[in-house]
Design a protein around this nucleic acid. Structure first.
Lengths: 343, 343
DNA sequence: TTTTAGCACTCTAAGCATTAGAGTGCTAAG
DNA sequence: CTTAGCACTCTAATGCTTAGAGTGCTAAAA
């Protein structure tokens, strides 16, 4: 890639910045007038024609201004964008929303986070709930409820508590129960949930089966419970915000986007795709492997519990997005989230 | 209200039925041709003019056909509508969706129900999750997790299991804990959750305080936990279905509707409003006290767990809705739901 | 050689007039 | 009381015109 001249950079930056603000194609006159480049519109026109040929700008039709191409946005994000300065109020809003609620459950915190994120950025935002299977087993309990039923409680290091009512067809003395449970705790302690594989469960079952046939039922259900939890919840906020964007004035586009938002499993895949990454990741348009959002930009960041990356928080909107601001907000939110979740 | 002549009834029924299907104003010719009334279009024209004067029909503009007014729909629902006959497949779909999953948690069942409902009716549907506060206390447990923390587990008769990690700043012997917990169980057993008022809790606290100051913390958190749960979840399905309706081709209307769907607390109020009612309730347009949905029809039905009405399931769409079908589907769904939930 | 002013050209979006079609209401005849 | 016929009304679609924004090119200026 040939490097852009300083002048071209300034002009590209001006076009992107203006288009982000106005959502209208930007003409040479506008650039000359509003962005003290110190050149006449004719000169800028020539430069813009060059930038178009190089693929950084596009023209909706011959007699319109230019708009940034996806390549143009990418260049802007990588080289031209000013580091975002959050307004003090925004930073405060975020930390207040998340800070207030120290005693609440993890789910509540996540919901607050997704709300504040969408309301500050004015885009749809989503958070992948902490991945149960990546957290490590801490302890398991079985509470007898009555003669026929018991409650299995499973606790992990990142504050997950899963429970499930199970049928115990034969009644079970409490000492027997205690024995089994402490054996399981001993075997499972410190494993992450996705290390509790079917084969491990089978092994344990064999061990115990000789001694206690009665727990067969409980095991089936424990297995199921683990399987079930593979699907992680994705929380959404501000889904209607896409309606504010002029690029979504077409009902058909709206429908497709909203339909996407209803498919939790797809959202999960999209977010999981960016899970490993450090810091903030920006995927512009077709940089994203998922077809349905190739007209959008997705900006994500990972959050951690106990030093482990357990989930992703993201903002999705049209490629015409205030990158600098959204990145700043997202970074700030993740910082706060990490602090809150690791209390 | 003067009774309608038989002929007027037949014509009104034809107009409503046709408009429900086509979403286009219905002209006298169409009625004469398609609905074997045995009258010419001119006669029907006269009758339709009468029906308009009586308030059952409306005219979008002079040279258009008629559409039913809200009063017209009401008359149709009360007097004209054929009892719905569900197709066998639909009934099967419903019971398969809900039946398959006998072992799942209540939340999962509710989510399945809302999905199947929206996909069969092609409207947005919503279910108010079971009201925690209307179910009765069955038992409470406290599991010590480590020296500093314990897990409070609360179980009710309708299968609710609430849990919360609490801090126990002083360590507590297990016999003391046992004592307190069994005292609480004894006092609370059989009360509904909203009978567990602040004053009752205070009383209990006084009783126990003399003996065990250490549980102070636990109490604060139990109180909180109860307060928190006042807000019941509302589950939504098929929110994008409103986009299929021609009456929502305007982006502004879509925005308002979707914004409504994001306000869980308002949805809750709307559904709660119809909680006491028996069987299926149809609220057409302005019959509904909530302004935001006065262009819509809301059809609701209550479901029960242990003979107690704990929640409501509803379908919302434009007033032009296939009443007979939706009512049939809803009735069938609630039957199935009742059966599944009371296993 | 680079920049700029000027101008012809292109394309869109908005406004306006025209028209086809659907449906009505009224009147007069059956 | 019913119906055929007809004039009338209103909408939605179509085509035409125009204003405006912006471009690309050329030739003059720096």
């Amino acid at each position: 890639m040939t490097a852009l001249s300083d002048r071209k950079k300034r002009i590209l930056a001006a076009v992107v910045a203006d288009y982000i603000q106005t959502a209208e194609p930007v003409g040479s006159r506008t650039v000359a007038r509003s962005y003290r480049i110190g050149l006449s519109s004719a000169t800028i026109r020539n430069e813009m024609a060059d930038l178009e040929e190089m693929g950084y700008l596009e023209q909706p039709h011959t007699s319109a201004g230019r708009i940034p191409s996806q390549k143009g946005y990418r260049y802007y994000v990588d080289h031209l964008m000013a580091a975002s300065e959050l307004g003090g109020d925004e930073e405060e809003t975020i930390s207040r929303y998340l800070g207030l609620e120290k005693m609440r459950e993890i789910e509540q915190i996540i919901i607050s986070a997704v709300r504040v994120l969408s309301s500050i950025t004015n885009h749809t935002s989503m958070i992948m709930g902490p991945q149960f299977k990546k957290s490590t087993f801490r302890q398991m309990r079985i509470l007898p409820l009555d003669e026929q039923r018991g409650l299995v409680v499973l606790i992990t290091d990142s504050g997950f508590i899963k429970n499930k009512v199970i049928d115990l067809y034969q009644s079970l003395s409490s000492s027997e129960l205690h024995q089994v449970v402490s054996y399981l705790n001993q075997k499972l302690f410190g494993l992450t949930i996705d290390q509790v594989t079917a084969s491990l469960i089978n092994e344990l079952k064999r061990d115990l089966f000789r001694r206690l046939e009665i727990l067969e039922q409980a095991f089936i259900l424990l297995e199921e419970s683990l399987k079930e939890e593979q699907q992680v919840r994705v929380f959404l906020g501000g889904t209607t915000n896409i309606l504010n964007q002029p690029e979504f004035k077409d009902v058909e586009k709206i429908r497709r986007m909203l339909a996407l938002f209803e498919q939790e499993s797809l959202l999960f895949k999209i977010l999981e795709n960016n899970l490993g990454e450090e810091d903030v990741v920006v995927k512009i348009g077709r940089e994203n492997p998922f077809e349905d959002i190739q007209e959008c930009t997705l900006i994500t960041a990972a959050y951690k519990i106990n030093q482990k990356t357990l989930g992703t928080v993201g903002v999705i909107g049209p490629t015409r997005m205030d990158y600098s601001r959204v990145i700043g907000v997202l970074r700030c939110l993740v910082d706060n989230l990490n602090r809150t979740l690791n209390l």
